[in-house]
Structures are given as structure tokens and as C-alpha cells.
Write a protein that binds this DNA or RNA. Sequence first.
RNA 1: GGGCGGUUAGCUCAGCGGUAGAGCGUCUCGUUUACACCGAGAGGGCCGGCGGUUCGAUCCCGUCACCGCCCA
Length: 891
Amino acid sequence: MLDKNFDPAAFETRLYETWEQEGAFAADPSRNAKPFTVMIPPPNVTGSLHVGHALTMTLQDVLIRFRRMQGRDALWQPGTDHAGIATQLMVERELQREGTTRQAIGREAFLDRVWQWKAEQGSAITRQLRRLGASPDWSRERFTMDDGLSGAVRTIFVRLFNDGLIYRAKRLVNWDPEFRSALSDLEVEMREVKGNLWHLRYPIEGTDQAIIVATTRPETMLGDTAVAVHPDDARYRDLIGKTVVQPITGRKIPIVADAHSDPEKGTGAVKITPAHDFNDFAVGQRHNLAAPSILDRSARIALAEIRADCHPADPSFLDSLEGLDRFAARAEIVAHLDAIGALDRVEPHTHTVPHADRSGAVIEPLLTEQWFCNAAELAGPAITAVEDGRIEFVPKSWENTYFAWMRNIEPWCISRQLWWGHRIPAWYGPDRTIFVAETEADAKLQAEEHYGHAAALIQDEDVLDTWFSSALWPFSTLGWPDNTPELARYYPGDVLVTGFDIIFFWVARMVMMGLYVMGDVPFRTVMMNGLVRDERGQKMSKTKGNVVDPLALIESYGADALRYTVTAQSGAGRNIKLGPAMVETNRSFVTKLWNAARFCAMNDCRPDPAFQSGHAKLPLSRWILDAANRAVAEATEALDAYRLSDYALACYRFTWGDFCDWFLELAKPGLSGETGEARELRAVAADVLGTILRLLHPVIPFVTEALWDDFGYGEAGSLIRAPWPDRVAVAGAEVAHDEVSWVIRLISEIRAVRGEMNVPAASRIPILLRDADPGTIARAGRWHAEIARLARIASLEPLTSDMPKGAAQAIIDEATIILPLADVIDLAAERRRLASTREKTASEAEKIARKLANQDFVARAPEDVVAENRDRLDAAQAELARLDAALSRIA
RNA sequence: GGGCGGUUAGCUCAGCGGUAGAGCGUCUCGUUUACACCGAGAGGGCCGGCGGUUCGAUCCCGUCACCGCCCA
């Protein structure tokens, strides 16, 4: 006997271990089956499961379990990403607590510590994925720093370098001064910050005039090499070409005309600091300006590069700035300018400031030598692949975002000044000649050839952007560059599921690398999932304190309830709102299924291998089997089209609305006993329950597998591999459908009238049918017991004598249902009820009549639409007549 | 400033040329061979505004408003 409620804690771990131990998640390249491949977007190894993971991983698991049941050789490739910055930060913090630093212990010892950390704590997220019920092939788990994957990184770096697609250059990059590393554009987050617009007076040489420039970053003025005005700005036309004297450094700099300067903003004149601003850098290039840096790698003032050109009025002030933090320097400079009368005014100003998305530090554009990847070149084929449909986005509108970014892609800065990551396979000779090779030995050979003798080489200190290795994931995990059976079979994959927030990190770069290395796209479909928000639609954040912990939700309501909730909420690509209340609500569906099964078990509805659903005879059997067919079709179509919420809802409707509310209720009395009919009903109940369990397994794997086992549909833990249900031809489905639908409508009508007339639930009333066809009367006779029970009536017979006094009436098709309620009926209320129904029907009829009276409609609308409206008008008018008759009877 | 998406029942969302839907919430009734994490019933909508196309518009087009996101 099953417990009254499903207790997830009692099943989840055990079932999961059974699956995993029996190899149920494993792909098998030797199997003769079509593969279905999903590459997990590898979560950060430092991460722990958040609701975003819960969403995207659930959706992937639904897809993979569905295809696995369809008999596909399903590979869901799991693993984690070494997350250079995040992981290094984690371990550095540990060291800090121990009172040491990575510099103090050295690179090698530090890397040992990171690996140690990874061994001890790097599997949190994979453990948590197990709690969620995710079913990737753990035996193939990979880590981006594994030997094989690291080898792939080196091989591809060398190949790209030799093809001229990777190069070293001194360019302005996004610099994280806290972390002291370059970052890519994508790792920078623009945040709105309240600041000031400082209006500064720059004297014009040889006059007593000054030009007022507006800036949000006064400290960078030390590196100014020009002032720019708009060429069409009449206010400044005469000043173009003149020289101004930078108030602190005394450097003489030109006023240049450049369209970068916006006449509407500030004063229309801006100072140009090429080494500390991306726009200014471009202006500098157009006007051949020098680009001296005035900040070091920790964003402290460094005067070395400007010393030579300085003629400060106050040298001691300038000297006092050396080594100051940029924000301290800002305060000093503003105060000094104010003191010397160079501060015109200060205007509060909100502007966007780049921040490092990991460390949170304000990004400093800094001129440094870095490795770059020519992304524009790689983007070409990646754009074509989406244009010509080799890759499709779901929903399609995301393709625009992809195109927009890809068509304006900037060189990708791939070097990071970190220790944890793939060390760049480049070595420098004594004269800084670069030798790029997969191994140091190769590099030495190259150097020997180059110099004519052996030379001492020093390897580049830097490592690669983590996303460089992630971009190779779809093939590096399959053994590339070796020609493994896995690579041949599982590349390209079928679908990549991910949030739109990493469309550029993941999708774009994997497509570029896949095409470059493999000559083929990495996946056919990109399914975008939305962002998870809290119950009020707010973005979750630690500072807001509205973060929902999926593990706590699993703890409280079970993994199935969480999985069902996120799946049902996940419209294609839209944001989903999630909170405990929603999961709690959806848990009731899991409970409902559990209880329906419990009821079946109590009535001995067990799977009967001899039963053939196609041979069912009872209309009720045929009706539910036919409805099951429709549910199977709907669910399958929805899954095929990646409409996972439609899939979840279709299963819900069928299970709750058809199976529980009507089939089980109508079948109840007929289930017991040893008649053939009872046996058939039990077999049908078990058969349909089996279909439901299979349909729902991808989304709620635990409860379905527990029931599968309990009912003996298959061996313990075998639902995960059970075949996906197919439609089964049901004899007489249409007739059964008409018949049972009529019964349902009749019961519903009677219930509605009872409800509105406040007939006590306990009172069993007789029902009469007026004007009913013989067929209807026969039907009513066949279903008498069921109707009597569910509509709580005493009898159901055709009206043969006079109309009883004080009766409520309702219309069903040609017949009028009569509920004699002489004692209890409120005639006025009944008249109101009938009149209101009449009103609705009349207005409906009038609307259709008006439509049909329109000659244009009749002439131009498709014939079937016109015919349909004629039918509807006939029906409405007939019903109207019956309602009028009913009304006149109680007038 | 450029682009994308949204605006449908109190809430969350489906629908997307031809009869406006679901779940939750609300109200009423209810212990009847599973389930109160339940059952039965009811109420609730000028489908954001204004134009246009069409025989017909929640749906297509234009425009405006508001909201969200991305890129400058």
C-alpha cells in the first residue's frame, strides 16, 4: 500500500543511485541507434547550483530523457569549467586567511593548491546536479583543465597563430586593477553611477582666454594630449589649431576638431586622454597624438611616461601625486584646480562606468601588450552558418542579437595575467622573438633554427581566457584531436541549451571554433532559456536578498516539484518567475499523480501484459485510450519543437483533467468484480497510467520511476529506458468520444444547475429528459449509474406525463433537462437564470446572423467558414427556441 | 541615440486572421471507494491607445504610450 503522499526524500537518492550504478545515463557509441547529443554548458567549478542552473539543466534533462526513451543513443556530456578568475580568487582568499600570498609561495605551489582545492571542493555543483535528477553521462565527465582538453587548447592556439588569427599587440584593453589582469569586453559590466561632471578651465596659450572642458574623470588629465571640439561647433571654430596649456602638467596640447566631441554634452569641448579611454584612443589615432599612460597596473598614478613633457607651474604638487590611487588622485586634483581657479563648476552627473563582472572593480582602460584573437575573421563563417539555417535559434528572434554582435565583433583579448588556466604556449628568445609551439621542446627546435644555435627560452607568463577552452568543449570533450569513435558520432551535437545572457560567451565562440577546427557547426539548434526572477519579477541578487536556493526548494518540495515548475513556466526564451509558493503549488500535481496511482493500486489495476489496448470494447475505455493518444501526440510534438512548457501542460491536462477527473470517477464502481468489463477497466486504467508515467518521466523522473517500480511495469529503475509511448489505434474512438463527451456535458449541466439553485449536495433528485431522441434516451439508460453517482440524482427518465410544477431546466443538444424541485425551487431565481442564459444565446445568435447578413462576408469568406457560421446560427436559434419554451413553462 | 522583446481575467502566462483560454487566487457548496497538496460550481476580459489593411483584427501593418533587456 502506497503512503498517502509521495515522500521525495524517501525515493530520490535511492532511485538516482540505481540509475547511475546501472549505467542508465551512459551513451554507447557502439549501439546501433541514432545519437542525440547535448553538450552541457560547463558550470563554473567554483559554483554552486543556483536557480538559473536549475532551469537550464532541467530543460536539458527533459530533452535528453525524452530522446533516450525514444531509443536514441543519448549523450549528455557533463563537466565543469576551470573558471580562471573565480577559482584563483577563491584560493587567493584562502591564502590570505593563512597570512600568505600566491606571490610568496610561488607559481608551482600555488597551482598545487588550486588542484587541491578542486579535488576537495570542486565537485559541489556536480553533486547538486544529481540532487536535481540530472542524467548526464557522468562516466564521461570532463574538466577544461584535463590533460586532453588542455592539449586541444595548445594545438588550436598554435594553429590559429600559424594562420595569423592570433597575434600579440599593444592595445588598449579592459584592465581590472584589483585583479591586475586584462579582461575581454564581455567580462565588463556597465553600471550606472552617480558622479560629477567637472568643468575645467584650460588656458589658451598666448591669450588670457580659456576653454572650458567637461570631464567625468579629472585625474586622467595628467595624460591629456589634446582638447577636442566638434568641427561644426561655431562656438569653438576659431580655437581649432590653437594650443592650450594643461593646468597641472603645463604640457602644451592642441585643440583638434573631431566629431567625437558632442556639442550637446557638457561644454562641447572634451579633453583627450588616449591611453585611458577607448574613444579618446580613437581620436588620438586620427590626430596622431601621443598616448602616455599615467596609471600603473594597480591604477595608481605613475608619472614616468609624462615627465619629459611636463612643465608644471607647481612641481611639488605634481610630484605629490606619484603613487596615489586613482580616486585619491582625483580628489587631490580637483581640490588643487579649485585652489588655482581652474575649476569652473561641478555638475552632478549620472553616467555608466565599466566594472569587472567578477571582482566588481572599476575597469581601467590600459595600454598593454596582450594576445588577441582575430574574431572578425572567425565570425564570417559563423554568421553564414546561422544565415543559411545550419544552426537555428529557438526562438528565432535571438538570431538578430547574434548577428548584431558577430557583425561588429572586436578583436578578442585572450590573455589573462593569472596563474590558474592554460598557460600560453609561446616562448620568448633572448631578443624577444616569439616561438609558438605545443611543447617547449618544439619551441626550442624553432629557436635553434631561427638563431642557428640553441637559445634560452622563457615561456609567456600569462594564461588564456577560460572561454577559449570552453569554446572547444563540443569537440575537445569527445577526444579531439584524436579521431575517436565519439568524435565521429557525437559531433555535431543536436542542441545547445543556454541562457541568452551568455549567447556571446558560449554560442558565438563555440560556433566560431567549431567551424574553424571541425569544419562543421557544433550543434544544430540553440535553445535559449529565460532568466529566472523572483516571484515579483525582480532579478535575483544577493544584495536584494531575494535569491531562491534551488536545493532548499528540493528539500522542501522535492526535485520533481521544482523541475515541473521551471519546465511549465519556461515559455520559449522568456523570463520565468520562481519562488517557494509556485513550487508548492506545483507539488500538488506530483501528489495528484501519486494519489491517482494509489487509487489504481487499491483497485488492483496492475499492468496486464496480455491486454491489448486496441481491442478495448467499453466506450469509456475507448474514450480514455483515445484521449491518451491525443496527449501522446501533443506531448511529443511539443518536445520535438522545444516547447517544453506546452509539453508539461499537455501532460498536466490529460492526467488531471481527463484521467483523474473523469475516467477514474466514471470507472469507479465498474472497477471491482470479476466481470469482463471490470477486468477491462482495470487493465485500461493500468495501461493509461503506464502511458502517463512514461509521458511525464522526462520532467518528473522520481515519482514516475517510483510508481513504475511499485506497479511492476518493468524492473526497478527501468522507466528511464522504457520506450516512449506511441499512439495505438483505438476501434470506435469517434463514437466513444461523442458518447462520453455527452455524458460529461450532462453531468456538468446538472451540477451547474444544482449549484446555482442551491440544491443541497445530499439531496438526490429525479431528472427528466424532455424532447430527447431515442438515441439520447438509450444513452442515458446506458450511463444511468455513472450519471446518478456523479450528478447525485435519484433517477433519469424521459418525460412522459405533464411538466412537473416548479422545475429547473437546462438544455443539452435537442433535449431539455428537467429538475423537478417543487419544494426547494425559487421560481424567480430560476427565471433569472434561464433568462440570462437566453440573453447570452440570443446575442450570440444575433452576432452570427449579422455576419451572415453581410453580403461581403458570404461572398468573400471561405466556404467552410460560412457553412460553419450557418451551423452555429442554426444551433443557437434552436437553443434559443428551447430556452423560450422552458421560460414559458414556468412563466 | 540604435536595436530587440513585452503590454490578454486580481496574479502568472497560453493563443496569433473566423465562437477569448489555462493554472493559481477570489466567492459559494461539499468528508461521495485515491487525493483538503482534494472535489463540484460560479464570477471575472472594449486582448495598452489611436489609425490602417481585410468580408472579418487580440492576431497583420503604421504610430504613440508605458515596461524590460542588449548595444553605443
